[in-house]
Amino acid sequence: MTRITIFPLPGVVLYPGLQLPLHIFEPRYRAMISDALARDRLIGMIQPQRPEEGAPLFSIGCLGRIGDVEALEDGRFNIILEGESRFRIVKELDVTTPFRQVEAELIEDSEDEALAPVERASFEREARRFADMQGYAVDWDQVARLDDVSLINGVSQIAPFDPAAKQALLEANGLGARCELLVQLMQFFGRHGEGDEEGVTLQ
C-alpha cells in the first residue's frame, strides 16, 4: 500500500508517461506542493464524483511526479506533473493537513502494449472525423509517428469529454479496451455534442 497526497480536480486526468501542466493558486494546494517538494515530489491526480468541497472520490487516479516548477513571488506555483502509475484508492485517511490523503495500491500497466493495425486504422479514421466536426487543426503526420500507447492515452487525457467519460477512459484496463471506448465516445460526442449549449453527458 502507498500513502498518496491527492489533488481532486473535476475534468482533469493524467496518464502514466504523459505530462500535465498545472497552475496552483489555492492556499491548501500551495501547501500540498510545498509538502510534496520537501518529501518525494509525488501527488495523485483524481477526480471527485461531484464538483463540490469534500465530495467522494472516484476510485482510480494517476500518481504524478513534479518535474518543472516555477515558484511565483505571491506563493503560487506553475508545475509540470509527469504521470507515473495509475492507482486504486483503498481508503481515504483521516488527516490534519489542509489537503486530502489516501491509502492506495498502484496499478501495473504494461508499457509496451500495441494495437492491431485494424484497431489503429479505425481509431485514426474516427479521430479525423471527430477533429473535423469539432474544427480542430491536427498535424496528422505527427500523429502517425506516435506509438500506440502515447496516441491513445494522449487523446484520452486531452479529449473534450465530460468528467464521467474521462474517468471511464482512465479506468479502462488495457490499451485495446481504452481505444475501443475512445472511438465510441468520439462517435457519441460527435453526433450529440454540436449545437447543445449545455453539453452532453454520459452520467
Rank of each mutant, 00 (worst) to 15 (best):
G67H: 07
D74M: 04
D74C: 05
P98N: 08
F123K: 10
F99L: 10
D109V: 09
R65I: 09
L106R: 08
R128K: 15
E111A: 14
D112L: 13
Q134E: 14
G64Q: 03
V118R: 13
D141W: 04
G67M: 08
R125H: 09
E92S: 08
D112H: 13
E73H: 05
E113P: 02
V95H: 05
D139M: 08
F99Y: 14
I80D: 05
R76D: 07
R88Y: 01
A104S: 05
E124W: 00
R86P: 00
S110Y: 05
A137W: 08
E70S: 13
P117F: 12
Q142V: 11
E124P: 00
E103V: 04
F87T: 04
E124Y: 00
D141Q: 15
R129V: 12
V90Y: 00
I89C: 04
I79D: 02
D109R: 14
W140K: 03
V95I: 13
R100W: 00
G64M: 02
L115F: 04
D74R: 06
A127Y: 15
E126I: 09
S85K: 15
A71F: 00
L81R: 07
S110M: 14
V95N: 11
R128D: 06
E126V: 12
R128S: 07
L93K: 02
I89Y: 00
A114Y: 12
I79Q: 01
I66H: 06
E126D: 07
Q142P: 06
I107Y: 02
E82F: 03
E84A: 08
R86L: 07
I79Y: 00
V90P: 01
K91A: 14
D74A: 03
A116Y: 10
F99N: 09
D109F: 06
D68Y: 06
R76W: 00
R88G: 04
I89M: 05
F130M: 02
Q134K: 09
I66N: 09
R86C: 01
R125E: 11
A71E: 15
I80K: 12
S122R: 15
G75I: 08
F87G: 01
A114V: 14
R65P: 00
I79E: 01
M133Q: 13
V95M: 12
V90D: 14
S85N: 14
L93Y: 00
I107H: 01
E92R: 12
P117W: 14
M133H: 03
G83Y: 10
V102P: 00
I79T: 02
F77V: 11
L115E: 11
A131P: 05
S122D: 13
L93H: 01
E84K: 14
F130H: 05
R76S: 09
A121V: 03
E82W: 04
E119M: 10
A127T: 10
V69S: 07
R88F: 00
R128T: 11
D109N: 11
D112E: 15
E103L: 12
V90K: 11
Q101Y: 00
I66C: 08
A137M: 12
T96F: 02
V95R: 09
E84C: 04
I66M: 07
L106T: 01
S122T: 10
K91N: 14
V69T: 11
L72D: 12
D132V: 10
G67C: 06
N78H: 07
D112I: 12
R125L: 10
V95Y: 01
R88D: 09
R88W: 01
L115V: 04
S122Q: 13
R120L: 09
R128N: 06
G67E: 08
S85R: 15
G135L: 09
E108S: 13
R129H: 14
I80F: 01
Q101A: 08
I89E: 07
